[in-house]
Structure formats: C-alpha cells, structure tokens
C-alpha cells in the first residue's frame, strides 16, 4: 500500500483544473443554448413555448446522471468514439440550458410591462425591444441567481467521474484506490470543492442583497 503523501494532494489540485474546465464548458454551453430557451418560453407562439416547456420538464425530471449515461452511450451508437469530455460537455450543456432557461425566463418576465409598452410607443421592433430595452434590464436581475446556479454546475461536474472523465472526484477515487485512506482523501476533495464553490455562494448572496437594497 502506498503512503498518502503531499504529491497526492498536488495531484488532486491539478485535477481540479479539469473540474473548472468542465464547469466553464457547461456554463458557456448552457448560456448559449439557455438564452434561446428562455426567449422561447416567453415567446408569443404557443408552439415555441410548448417546445421549450417540454424540454425543461424533460431535463428537470430526469437525473443528470442518466443524461450523462444517455449521451455517453448514445454517442457510441451514433458511431463516434466515446470521448468522456465530449459526452460530459454535451450533457452539462443540456442540463445547464434547461435550468438557466427557466431562471432567465423569470428574469425576463420580471422586467415591468410598462417597459414593453414604452418601447412599443417608440416604434421599436421586437428585436430592438429585446436588445436595447428588455434584456439589459433582465441581465441585472439575472446575475445573482445565475451566479448561484454556477455553484450547482461546479458541484455536479463531479458526476462526470462516472463516465471516466478524470476531474476532481475521479482523481479522489484514483488516489483512494492506491492509498486506501478514503476519509482523509474525500475530505480533502470536499475541501477543494468548497474552496471553489464558497466564493461563488458568497458572491451570489452579496449580489442578491445589493439588488434588493432599495426594497424590503
């Protein structure tokens, strides 16, 4: 049995880079897909609203773990090489887009109706209304809950370990397999996750408080 050493800890910290990489992929992918989902949810067309609603219900009603397995094995069926990073990237994009879409829908709806009416009176078309009037205001409302959701993303990237992507959680398992000191190792892993997540949690709370400064 190998003694637990400082190098193991270093290995965990190195692996945390892949947790961060995967989180960034998830967030960027989720944002790119999530914004259209949010816009579809508030669209005038019942078909678009229905599609976006169905998508969100589907993703929010199945565990992320199952989404991961589906995209991992689904890619295999389509004849692609089973690359865990690709499968994980797709799954997390699908997952984050559903949640961000729903969060941002709330933010778009929170912009007062009078803003729509005023921009109507100014003769702006729908694109201009969104680009210059609604979305900039919705963005301000959206920042605190979005930062809060980033904590969920970072934590959930740990699930990518089950399809063999070596990030922080998987690195913990690997070190554990050779040293068998699970309590110390997984506590260390938890601490690293905490270091990544806690600043985001605090930021979300502070932003939230600042956003509500005038009220309550």
């Amino acid at each position: 049995m190998i003694q637990l050493s400082f190098n193991h800890l270093l290995y965990l910290v190195e692996a945390a880079r892949f947790t961060i990489l995967l989180s960034v992929i998830a967030f960027v992918g989720g944002a790119i897909v999530g914004l259209p989902v949010a816009l579809m949810r508030v669209s005038k067309s019942p078909t678009l609203r229905g599609i976006a609603w169905g998508y969100i219900q589907l993703v929010q009603g199945t565990p992320l773990l199952i989404v991961l397995f589906l995209s991992y094995f689904g890619l295999g069926i389509l004849g692609y090489k089973l690359d865990p990073l690709v499968a994980a990237g797709i799954s997390f994009t699908v997952y984050a887009a559903a949640f961000l879409g729903e969060i941002w829908r709330g933010c778009i709806e929170a912009v007062p109706k009078t803003q729509w009416e005023a921009s109507d009176c100014l003769g702006l078309n729908v694109f201009q209304q969104y680009a210059y009037v609604i979305l900039p205001q919705a963005l301000r409302i959206a920042i605190p809950p979005t930062v809060g959701f980033m904590v969920q993303i970072v934590k959930n990237t740990s699930l990518a370990s089950v399809i063999g992507f070596v990030e922080l959680a998987r690195a913990g398992q690997i070190v554990n397999n050779s040293t068998f000191e699970p309590f110390a190792i997984f506590t260390a892993v938890a601490v690293i996750y905490f270091v990544l997540c806690y600043p985001l949690s605090v930021a979300a709370r502070t932003l939230e408080r600042r956003a509500h400064a005038g009220r309550s």
């Binding site: 959680a169 309590f183 997984f186 996750y193 905490f194 806690y198």
Partner: peptide
C-alpha cells in the same frame, strides 16, 4: 449548511460510505 451546500453529493456519499467504514 455551508459545508453541505458547497460540496457535491457524490463526495458526501463517499465520505459517509467509504470514509466512515475506514474509521
């Protein structure tokens, strides 16, 4: 609350199952 909400459930499960049994 902060400890649990800022760490993944997967790691919490590992600590309870593998960690406690090693202790």
């Amino acid at each position: 609350v902060e400890a649990i909400r800022n760490t993944p459930l997967l790691i919490q499960i590992f600590i309870v199952y593998f960690g406690l049994s090693s202790l």
